[in-house]
Design a protein around this nucleic acid. Structure first.
Lengths: 348, 348
DNA sequence: ACTAGAGGTGTAAACGCTTACACAGCGATA
DNA sequence: TATCGCTGTGTAAGCGTTTACACCTCTAGT
């Protein structure tokens, strides 16, 4: 059923129907309610494409995901999507997904979206990151973007960025470990370079702890990498009493290796990690880890994007999302601490 | 840039441009190539909404997910989406996501999609299932659906169904356990009623194994539920030498409980489970489990849907996707078997 | 030489909505 | 009573495509 047919059926003009639908323009309250009610009754819904064509906007935004697909950590996408969807639905927007494909052509796909007016704007998220040149080229178009990025680029017109600020979570890690009495902490990283090491070391030294150079080791990405690195780290002479593992995925392997070495967690070694993947509460023991609120990341990105779309001008806010520690059973005071200093006082 | 502007710029009519784009209608090869080339150069992309309006189809299909959001097992959505996207992109279709919201209004949202011609068809997936009445009401519309469903409903016009056929995977479980020498097997279910129990029991008894009534226990959904159930199951007098756990999520808890009871896996008790969630290879020990190919499930649903869309008639195929066992370290011959019968012969 | 048919192109009417503008009715003001 | 302004409604011109139809130019068949 078209608007014309419907209008004739209820005895008004198409303009009146349209005004009733959008609630703007001059229309009497009475007519408006009548039209809306009869819409329900007759089941008339305006054609979306005709609307988009006339409005020159589709109230649809696109989601583009670039990058590596990882078995275990991909689930952050789910949380991200949930956040994105949530905000979009509150504003009556739809979400369009780009078809999968090789990444070399992703950029032209995005451009195509923009030019065909398929979307009013897009959220771009990359793993591990969205290349800066990409973003710059994106800025040239008449469309707005909200990107979720690891390393924020210099400001770009029409491109709003949201990134993570890891410092808060890391500070909490330092606070926790030091307050438990750990002073010699191991660092099991993923890939170099990794600013988190410096962050953590600073926070630790400010509280009397430290990360010795020989206790820093970069592992890789998989649980097996983590296991290997843990064996290496803990087989040395002066073994740290606590280990910070850069990702939960690594930590899963590391904890297995630690157990296999005959050490107990957290009795002999405490483990703290990062990301809080859905599985983290179910490791053995449950993992103390820094939660990354991907849902919030998605929400913030969409909010920035929508703000731009509303005003039709770059609101080039660069905002960040904080992290925070989730404490579970994988940490405890160090063994020597309990004995030599009788210090259970640090127990929460 | 509109098609008119572009056509004028390159000195042809809009009709010619359109014919070049779609490669149908009478147009000389030479002209066509010229137009396409100049499209690249000038960066003209036809307006999607105008196209959809004129074509009366959008080459977009919707994805509707109904149901419970579970922490750990939701990732099946990711695999599903991957499969869906894959097939869609091969056919040049886009994917539209319904905004999140309460499930009571989901149906009217779907109807709205259909009536507003936002999508040509939709994939519907429900957890745990899509209500049959729903499907029946869906069938009344002029749009096609591909639904992923646990219990296939009676045939409905315009609604193609794909569901899982669990029998193959379950048979393989029985084969594996019996060939290893297990004869008394425990069943740790999730929620009643559960047809898998009957399936497994049949396959087992056909091979000399069995599930005693006192070895059947329904746990729930979470790892903690699994742990509780495992303790109950294995603390009895005659404890089974192997346990089939209905879901990996339950198994994670069950395995922890088993370890805590001082039993070794698989030395004292073998564990086989179902779903093969991404984490399954990383449990301790890695879980032997039945893989459910969600990606394929998504692909099949889309293929059915697209077939209907092409021919514009119900191809009411109801297809199924099979499962298959993935063997990992959580199974071994039973202890008594190794001793009393010296039977390591069953080791693969 | 004339026509039939086919291939190539252009013109203009849809597609189903929005909205600027015109216009009718009507109470208030002069 | 004529004028103004305001409210509510209708008319019609877009929005940017597709495609049926008309037209023109060939080549081939008679």
């Amino acid at each position: 059923m078209t608007i014309e047919e419907f209008a004739r059926k209820i005895g008004v003009s198409t303009a009146t129907v349209s005004r009733a639908i959008h609630g703007k323009g001059r229309i009497s309250l009475q007519t408006r309610q009548m039209v809306l009610q009869r819409m329900e009754e007759l089941g008339f819904t305006p054609n979306l494409h005709a609307q988009s064509l006339a409005h020159r906007r589709s109230r649809t935004i696109g989601l583009e995901y670039l990058g590596r697909t990882e078995v275990l950590s991909d689930m952050f996408l789910l949380a991200l999507a949930r956040g994105i969807q949530q905000v979009l639905s509150e504003h009556g927007y739809n979400l369009l997904l780009n078809p999968v494909g090789v990444s070399t052509e992703r950029e032209s796909l995005l451009r195509r979206w923009a030019r065909s007016r398929a979307v009013d704007g897009a959220i771009v998220v990359g793993n591990p990151d969205v290349p800066v040149e990409w973003l710059q080229r994106l800025g040239g178009q008449r469309i707005f973007y909200g990107v979720i990025v690891r390393h924020p680029p210099p400001p770009i017109a029409n491109v709003g960025c949201v990134s993570l600020d890891l410092s808060q979570g890391i500070r909490q890690v330092a606070e926790l470990l030091c307050s438990l009495g750990h002073s010699r902490i191991g660092y099991l990283g993923s890939i170099e370079p990794d600013p988190v090491l410096a962050l953590l070391r600073d926070e630790l030294t400010a509280r009397g702890g430290d990360i010795l150079a020989e206790h820093v080791i970069y592992a890789g990405r998989t649980p097996d990498d983590g296991a290997r690195a843990a064996r290496q780290l803990l087989s040395g002479e002066s073994r740290p009493t606590a280990v910070f593992v850069r990702t939960d995925v690594l930590a899963i392997g590391a904890m297995r290796a630690i157990r296999e070495m005959g050490l107990q967690i957290p009795r002999h070694v405490s483990v703290v990690s990062h990301d809080d993947i859905p599985f983290a509460p179910f490791t053995d023991p449950p993992l103390t880890t820094v939660r990354v609120d991907y849902e919030q990341l998605g929400k913030s990105a969409v909010e920035m994007l929508l703000a731009m779309l509303e005003r039709q001008e770059p609101v080039n806010l660069h905002c960040t999302v904080h992290t925070s520690l989730v404490q579970r059973a994988s940490v405890a005071p160090p063994l020597h601490h309990q004995i030599s200093q009788g210090g259970l006082s640090h127990h929460a």
